[in-house]
Design a protein around this nucleic acid. Structure first.
Length: 826
RNA sequence: GCCGAAGUGGCGGAACGGUAUACGCGGCGGUCUCAAAAACCGCUGGAGGCAGACUCCUUGUGGGUUCGAAUCCCACCUUCGGCACCA
């Protein structure tokens, strides 16, 4: 024992986290402790969303990475060959903005940050296999990002089209629908409200997978994420009906209520609808054009702001209601959106709130075709959107509207005027970005041959290093002649490259595949390694990616499967979303609030293990919690107590002998096996906070039992070994150091997870709770294996119970084995 | 408006049909010290009671189911997220 006598007590060497942490990090790396090969018997791919190399590791990174590391370490001790990789999502705007602001090249800026972050990440003491690191901005990576684009293009899953798209005026680029958030339609990245621009852009056909993306079969994801994705995809079942204009054009509308078609008294087209121009009559043209122009000028925010008032213009044309042959006017109004359904609706004012408001505004008739309950034929004061018997609906009168939906659709389908249809809210994924720092879209435009994909053997299309970064709001690639001008791979004539780059969410849609063989150069991944590791068994990360990254990567996986690249349907089988760490003031950490906690400061003073353990102790992982500087000191005290306990079994005063000693030894065994059981259960459930609480309790118990002087007994040695093993996932450095000091073989992280024996964990005596009518009236110490009748008899005789049974009749006595007796009296 | 999550001591939280408040923080008292800090030990939901015994109250609110409810069911309130003129 390394220690010296001092004032009668053994003073063990002090716990100095900084020294032992640095030492073990070095040793782990030198011995390649965390490297896993592909020929392992029990592969387990554990992944946490990789970071953007912003240049500084904040508390959020620690909160994402250290609990997941603890879980991965546990699985490893359970016998899995865990692959826990790390890398960098390295393309993106901040690098380019730094280039504009500080004149440093995005590549330099990014690689410098990565170098710095590698050091900070290492300080966490996580079991990452750095040999598998991926960096998405390096040509050996983005070559395959481009390759994927080409496969999507070949299979008809990538296309280019012109339309009104979301534009972030601050980021100076277009965004995908998923990347525009909130009521004020702001940019997900920078918070600036977006505007609309009419542009020709590249899209990936994610909508082709809408139906399959709605199903989360075979994966265990939080209900929250599943619901968010379902809402986002927004499936609506109904029918497409054809209203023929008097000029003979078919106007297709989508409706979820074909049963109400007899009540359609007008039609509304979106102002941008392609038929508007053709159908508008000369006398209405001026008014229509004015309205269309006004609608275009209006941002989405303004359109939202005028939600209550419906506006619109009659275009002079009429259409025929396909159900009853009636002639109904065609209007345009901006409450009908070109981007949803067919951009045209039938107006059924009696049974749709928006149509009702519109009809009221413009004096259009509101005939009832679904009878509301208790309706006497008077005009409606508001739309009735419920079910009911159909009326004024020709052959369908009397039919319930629920059946009417199918019946009317079939009736119109038979006449060639409709068919059942499903519409989704999900749009195709806009992937063009008007920025430099991303993977160039590998497409060439040839005046002779048109749109020509870059041949696979010519990949990667490299980003030119000498681009000029000016705050013009346009991609430097557009003005880089050397990049832009090229020759057509088909005809050899002069041609131009696409100058937009890809959304960085493409890079992260397939990074899990790259980790299985990060340096493979015959494809994006080695199929052999992919069969070993994919799909990811456990994925963890923030909920903010529910409808972006997590949807995109599912789409990628399904598309890859259909292209014959993968043989599984889902990228990640299990998902866990951690919460957010708030500042000491319970507010979100931000520089402007001045409540930012710098983890490096605490690593320096209290050690990485204390930071890790504290973050896991703060509360349930999925809920996050507030930082508390006193709280982490409490954890630090705990680790110091553990240190002293493990290294010094000497009682502070006296020790137990004889029977007393035997009782203490039994207590040690019991505490040990109970703790293994509790901790294992909590680790299985990601309940790190209670896991640590159980370890604290165990430590407190052992500190008390140390006074019995049990050093040298088998029970004590086992208890100490167990404590260190259970500590290993949470505080890997401290556990490794203690493991070595108690004579364990390197490494503690290669030990088997301890198992518990129910018999050893079982109590000899229990506290039997005595209730009268459900209220606790007494507590009795009884043997754990007490017979039911004995327990009942003891309870009935107990002083506490008697006090409350006075003069009352016992109606029933309920015994819950090993727990309580409830005496029911009246 | 629709969908989801959450409301428990002074604070973070535990228990999720059977001892409410584990564990930690804070507070109070003590040991050590000339003193303080650190460390360690004890007490700590509220009310009544001099105190122990004991009694009553307490898991957002109000009902219900049950021998027994923080836990299950119904209604409501609050907070936080997502969606929202989606036809």
């Amino acid at each position: 024992m390394a220690g010296r006598r001092f004032r009668g007590a053994i003073m063990t060497e002090k716990y100095i986290p900084q020294t032992i942490e640095a030492r073990w990090q070095k040793r782990w790396e030198e011995t390649r402790l965390y490297h896993v090969d592909d020929d392992v018997p029990n592969p387990y791919f554990f992944l946490t969303m990789f970071p953007y190399p912003s240049g500084d590791l904040h508390i959020g990174h620690w909160y994402a990475y250290t609990p997941s590391d603890a879980r991965a370490r546990y699985l490893r001790m359970k016998g899995y060959d865990v692959m826990l990789p790390i890398g960098f999502d390295a393309f993106g705007l901040p690098a380019e903005n730094a280039a504009i602001k500080h004149g440093i090249h995005p590549y330099q800026w990014t690689m410098r940050n990565i170098e710095r972050m590698r050091q900070q990440l290492r300080s966490m003491g996580a079991m990452w296999d750095w040999e598998r690191e991926v960096v998405t901005c390096q040509p050996e990576y983005y070559r395959w990002t481009q390759w994927f684009f080409l496969q999507f293009y070949k299979h008809g899953l990538a296309y280019r089209t012109r339309s009104a798209v979301d534009w972030c005026p601050n980021c100076n680029t277009t965004l995908a629908r998923e990347q525009v958030w909130g009521e004020d339609r702001h940019c997900e990245r920078c918070g600036t409200p977006v505007t609309k621009k009419e542009l020709e852009q590249w899209y990936l056909r994610i909508t082709r997978y809408a139906e399959e993306l709605l199903r989360h079969d075979g994966i265990n994801w939080p209900e929250r994420v599943v619901t968010m994705q379902r809402n986002w995809i927004g499936r609506s079942e109904g029918a497409e009906l054809i209203f023929r204009s008097e000029q003979g054009d078919d106007i297709v509308v989508f409706t979820t209520r074909p049963d109400t078609v007899y009540g359609a008294t007008f039609m509304v087209l979106a102002p941008e609808h392609p038929l508007v121009n053709r159908l508008t009559t000369p006398d209405r043209r001026a008014a229509v054009e004015e309205y269309v122009a006004a609608a275009q000028r209006r941002t989405e925010i303004e359109r939202l702001a005028v939600e209550k008032d419906k506006t619109g213009v009659f275009i002079g044309a009429y259409a025929i209601n396909p159900a009853n042959g009636e002639r109904i006017p065609i209007w345009i109004a901006d409450y009908v959106l070109m981007g949803y359904g067919t951009g045209a609706i039938m107006g059924v004012p009696a049974h749709d709130e928006r149509d009702f408001a519109f009809a009221k505004e413009y004096g259009l008739p509101i005939p009832v075709v679904i009878r509301p309950p208790d309706w006497n034929g008077e005009p409606l004061t508001e739309a009735y959107t419920g079910e009911g018997p159909m009326v004024n609906s020709g052959p369908f009168d009397g039919m319930n509207s629920r059946e009417g939906i199918k019946a009317v659709t079939a009736y119109l389908e038979a006449r060639g005027l409709g068919r059942p249809a499903v519409t989704y809210r999900l749009r195709d994924w806009l992937i063009s970005r008007q920025r430099y720092w991303g993977a160039p879209i590998p497409i060439i435009y040839c005046p002779q041959c048109g749109t020509v994909p870059v041949p696979e053997e010519d990949l990667p299309v490299l980003l030119p290093e000498d681009a000029e970064f000016l705050p013009t709001g346009e991609s430097p690639l557009k003005y880089h002649e050397g990049f832009r001008r090229t020759t057509c791979p088909q005809c050899g004539g002069p041609a131009e490259r696409e100058t937009d780059t890809m959304d960085t969410f493409i890079c992260s849609s397939w990074y899990q595949m790259r980790y299985v063989s990060p340096h493979y150069d015959k494809g994006p991944f080695d199929p052999k390694a992919a069969r070993v590791w994919l799909p990811v068994k456990q994925y963890t990360g923030g909920i903010e990616h529910a409808c972006m990254h997590l949807l995109y990567t599912r789409f990628f996986t399904k598309a890859c499967r259909d292209m014959g690249l993968l043989d599984h349907d889902e990228p990640m089988l299990n998902l866990f979303n951690q919460g957010i760490v708030l500042g000491e003031d319970n507010e979100k950490m931000s520089k402007s609030r001045g409540n930012v906690v710098n983890p490096d400061d605490y690593v320096r003073t209290l050690g990485a293990d204390a930071v890790r353990a504290y973050l896991m102790f703060i509360g349930p992982w999925e809920l996050g919690g507030s930082w508390n500087s006193r709280g982490i000191e409490g954890i630090s005290r705990f680790l110091n107590r553990v240190w002293g306990l493990v290294l010094d079994p000497t009682p502070r005063q006296g020790s137990a002998t004889g029977e007393e000693r035997e009782r203490r030894i039994a207590e040690v065994w019991r505490a040990t096996h109970k703790t293994i059981r509790t901790c294992t259960e909590h680790m299985e459930g990601f309940r790190f906070n209670v896991y640590i609480a159980a370890l604290m309790e165990y430590t407190n118990t052992l500190l008390r039992l140390r006074e019995a002087g049990l050093g040298g007994t088998e029970a004590w040695s086992e208890a100490i070994r167990t404590l260190v093993l259970l500590l290993a996932p949470i505080t890997p450095h401290l556990a490794e150091e203690l493991w070595e000091r108690i004579g364990g073989a390197y490494s503690v992280h290669q030990q088997r997870w301890p198992e518990w024996d129910e018999r050893l964990a079982a109590d000899e005596m229990i506290t039997l709770v005595v209730q009268v009518n459900g209220k606790v009236r007494d507590r009795l110490q009884v043997p754990a294996d007490i017979a039911a009748d004995d327990a009942k008899a003891l309870a009935l005789a107990s002083a506490g119970a008697k006090r409350h049974m006075d003069g009352k009749t016992v109606r029933d006595v309920i015994y819950v084995s090993g727990k309580l007796v409830n005496i029911v009296v009246r």
